[in-house]
Nucleic acid binder design. Structure first.
Length: 505
RNA sequence: GGUGCAUUCGUCUAGUGGCCUAGGACGCUGGCCUCUCACGCCGGAAACCCGGGUUCGAUUCCCGGACGCACUACCA
């Protein structure tokens, strides 16, 4: 069947967008773009009890940050709206009516308490062909009684009537053929009169049909209900335009097993959300990738490879490359544990690849916080010297603070290892030499100082390390003449003087 | 409990019956580079869940088991 590829990402606004959801959206995006198709953003808010204010805005901002663009949906518009399920009540009612009239569904009056009691009483109770004739519904009640109860305003639900003992085939693009016997699927609730809203299953099928969705790409947690959805398409007479299914493997916790959850992030100290989230009810703050210093490209790259692999040895992919290379049949079938360390490595790769000036612009805000004012050319130069050593922009400060700020303390370990008995005298001598120099630029100072060391017969390592400790405060950092060149003669002498006064042997 | 899905180094994975002495990456680790610390480069340790089949030959195919996960709501 040749039809336009149309896929959707359909989150429920019950909180911040989970990183697993981001991956699902990403795969949908890649698949859509690869086939010149459309990606639709639909908000599944059919559970009025679980609505969380701000969640919808959060979702949209997350995708904006990540660079995943939708073609249609909430916040964008399009010809198949509204895209918020709570605004589609009347549409669903029509199909509930159709199902009822065709005898594919029925009205049930059993209250939640009664059902709970039933489940207590019967070990593996399931509302299905084997039990429905013992329940309170339009199959067991006379029609007038059903009418009377509805007219009286009694709360009811509409359940699908599943015909037992039939093998339902779900063709899954990542798993192949999955067969489930209809006897184990229960008469799921499709609609509740209490809020006049359908449940997920009905809303989902109706919307996918009406929005002309060609492929349903979603998490593996939906696999068990896929047969129900197939049966629903059949009951509504839409089987010929039923979308193809692809159930994605789950993202698992880094330690132990189980689905990755918000708590894992808090517990293990890494973000599980794209953006920082402030819970409006509890006031809790959960960290986000953006605020932790991640580049959106790195997050995308990292996520893409968690459950998908092109088969080559390539690991760094731009979004465009992913669009070209992605394919559902190379999605793995088993869950992937979330490896935060690898995520850092991806960010490192992107940071290294970025132009120094771009990283410097980002780093400027950190400098401002530290009270440092420097022009961008000088900052760019320093960034170029140290950016290979960190994973995140904010970490840059630890690697280059001494370019901007003189050390006030001296690292003990470095002192113990690199500050020798002769160091104070050598530094005094070096100060005199430096003071006498007219041209202190790196290119000039370096050969002159090296020549002096040789002339005196001093150890290069001994002099240079002591010099480094004076300037940096520790035995680390880039080439020493890059530092002297940057801070200049006066500052170099000041730091040496300070060091000689404060380092006690 | 029931149903379904899965199972290669610690982790992400390559592998579709002989090319596997099982490849790559993260992490860990040894060395080189070097005034230091990093980066980088070169090396190392590290895996086919178990038992039956099928086959001349199974990591790869089939069956069983084990372990894991998901689902089992008037939630999505």
């Amino acid at each position: 069947m040749d039809r336009k590829v149309r896929v959707r990402f359909a989150p429920s606004p019950t909180g911040p967008l989970h990183i697993g959801g981001v991956r699902t959206a990403l795969y949908n995006y890649l698949f859509a773009k690869q086939h010149d198709g459309d990606l639709i953003l639909r908000i599944e808010d059919t559970d009025s009890n679980r609505f969380v204010p701000g969640a919808e805005e959060y979702i949209q901002e997350s995708f904006r940050w990540l660079g995943i663009r939708f073609d249609e949906g909430v916040g964008i518009g399009g010809p198949h709206g509204p895209y918020r399920q709570s605004e589609r009540r009347d549409i669903y009612k029509k199909y509930v009516r159709q199902l009822l009239d065709a005898g594919k569904a029925y009205v049930a009056f059993d209250t939640p308490t009664e059902l709970e009691a039933k489940r207590q009483e019967i070990p593996n109770f399931q509302y299905d062909a084997s039990t429905r004739m013992q329940m309170v519904n339009s199959l067991t009640l006379p029609p007038e009684e059903v009418e009377r109860r509805i007219a009286a305003g009694e709360k009811y639900v509409v359940r699908i009537k599943i015909e037992p003992n039939e093998d339902v085939h779900v063709h899954d693009l990542v798993r192949g053929e999955v067969v489930i016997n209809s006897s184990i699927v229960d008469d799921k609730v499709l609609y509740k009169s209490a809020d006049e809203l359908p449940t997920y299953h009905l809303a989902n099928v109706v919307d996918d049909y009406l929005m002309e969705i060609s492929h349903v790409i979603r998490g593996e947690e939906w696999l068990p209900s896929a047969p129900l959805h197939v049966l629903l398409y059949r009951a509504l007479g839409w089987e010929d335009v039923m979308p193809q299914f692809a159930h994605l493997p789950l993202l698992l916790k880094p330690d132990g097993n189980g689905k990755l959850s918000k708590r894992d992030g808090d517990r293990l100290g890494f973000p599980v959300f794209p953006l920082e989230w402030h819970d409006p009810k509890t006031g809790d703050v959960s960290s986000g990738y953006r605020e932790s210093g991640y580049f959106p490209e790195a997050v995308i790259n990292f996520l893409a490879l968690l459950g998908w692999h092109a088969g080559s040895n390539q690991e760094i992919y731009s979004l465009d490359e992913l669009v070209r290379e992605f394919s559902l049949d190379r999605v793995s079938k088993s869950g992937a544990k979330f490896d935060f360390e690898k995520g850092k490595w991806f960010n490192h790769q992107y940071l290294k690849a970025k132009p120094d000036s771009e990283v410097a612009d980002l780093f400027q805000s950190v400098l401002v916080q530290k009270g440092i004012i420097e022009d961008s050319e000088r900052v760019t130069h320093v960034v170029g010297l140290v950016k290979d050593r960190v994973n995140f922009v904010p970490e840059l400060w630890n690697e280059c603070s001494f370019f901007f700020k003189a050390p006030t303390e001296f690292d003990e370990k470095s002192l113990k290892k690199r500050w020798k008995a002769e160091s104070p005298a050598q530094m005094e001598e070096l100060m005199q030499l430096i003071a006498s120099m007219d041209d202190f630029s790196g290119v000039h100072a370096e050969p002159e100082i090296m020549a002096w060391i040789e002339r005196k017969g001093y150890g290069v390592g001994i002099v240079m390390n002591a010099f480094r400790i004076c300037l940096v405060g520790a035995a680390r950092g880039p080439h020493i003449f890059e530092i002297t060149d940057f801070i200049g003669k006066e500052e170099t002498l000041n730091r040496m003087r300070y060091a000689l006064e404060h380092i006690s042997m």
